[in-house]
Computed example of a mutant assay.
Amino acid sequence: MSQPNAVLFDELGPRGRRRVRTLTVVSAVVLVLVLVLAVVRLAQNGQFAYDLWAPLVDPTTEEFPLVWQRLGRGLLWTLAVAAVAMAGSLVIGVGIAVARLSLGRYGRLPLVAVVELFRGLPVVVTILYVSIALPVLGVDLSDNWFLAIGLIVYNCVVISEIVRAGVLAVPHGQVEAGQAVGLRPSQVMRSIQLPQAFRSMLPAIISQLVVILKDTALGAVVLNGVTELTRQGQQLRNFFDNALQTFFVVAVIYVVVNILLGKAAEVLERRLSRSRTASASAVAEDEESVRV
């Protein structure tokens, strides 16, 4: 029999729980064996040699300060490009979503075409196309700007779809209530629909912002002049001939930054939830005082 808290599936019985525990143990053992095998093979190939790791982890070496200076500069450029891409994607994405919802059936067709076009392109192709098309049009920028613009072009349409879905999920009764008190459609959108859409779609938006941060690494694949973290790692790899070690450290940096971004998103979401709860409580108290 289903338990009250079982939403998507029935509660497992004794046999099902035993099967899950068995599969969990087997999977953990297989994973540990694979990791041990990988460590052994790496050791046999000399990948744990001190000379390969020393420039990255030993502060007493002469190269250590220079290596982390390069990695730090790359991280700053990564954060700067990601911040520009995030801000541009949010602003343009919200604008596209609002325009698409506000225009008529035929007036929104150009926007629909643009959204479907850039959603269908791989982000690497978008970055490469921006870096080729803008110079042809007479726009002379650095590769870091081409990377930021390419990320904006791709991610703004994705964010526009997230925001549009959030706006459409707002109960229509609230829209009708806003119109009943004399609000114009633009005021209803700005004061009622968008705030609620952002609250409900915040996890999806944050996930897309994390994707933007990770996608900055694609600049090192298609652009030679970028100075972000992955490009710095490539240059260090070429100099020290320690690709596995260098990119292990680069990967750890990306993971730490993304974890911090996720924690910041959790804090923001909790604050928004508390403010929403406090507002609902205040409204309830006002209504109770009016009835009294």
Rank of each mutant, 00 (worst) to 15 (best):
T60G: 15
F64N: 08
E62T: 11
I96T: 00
T60S: 15
G88T: 01
P55G: 03
A99R: 07
I96S: 00
A97G: 02
I92Y: 04
W68C: 00
F64P: 02
G72V: 07
E63N: 13
P59N: 07
A99L: 15
R70D: 11
A87S: 11
G74V: 02
A97D: 06
P59C: 09
T60H: 15
A83N: 03
L71C: 02
L66N: 13
W77E: 14
R100S: 09
V81W: 03
G88K: 04
V94L: 14
E62F: 10
T78P: 00
I96F: 12
P55A: 05
M86Q: 06
A54H: 10
L79S: 02
T78N: 02
R70T: 03
F64M: 06
P55Y: 06
E62V: 11
A83E: 09
L75C: 04
L76M: 11
P59H: 09
M86V: 14
T60Y: 13
L90V: 04
A54P: 10
L71G: 00
G95K: 01
V84K: 00
L76H: 02
Q69K: 14
G72H: 06
V98T: 11
V81H: 02
I92S: 03
A54T: 08
G93R: 04
E63R: 13
T78V: 05
V98I: 15
R100A: 05
T60E: 15
S89L: 07
R70A: 14
L66W: 14
L66I: 13
A97E: 07
F64G: 02
E62L: 12
L71A: 03
A80S: 12
G95W: 12
L76T: 06
A87V: 15
A99W: 12
S89M: 09
V84M: 08
A54K: 08
P65G: 06
G95C: 10
T60P: 09
V84T: 01
W77D: 08
A80I: 13
L90G: 00
V81N: 00
A85M: 07
F64L: 06
F64Q: 03
V67M: 08
V98A: 14
T78F: 02
V84C: 05
R73H: 12
F64E: 06
P59V: 01
E63S: 14
V67C: 07
V57E: 06
R73Q: 14
M86K: 01
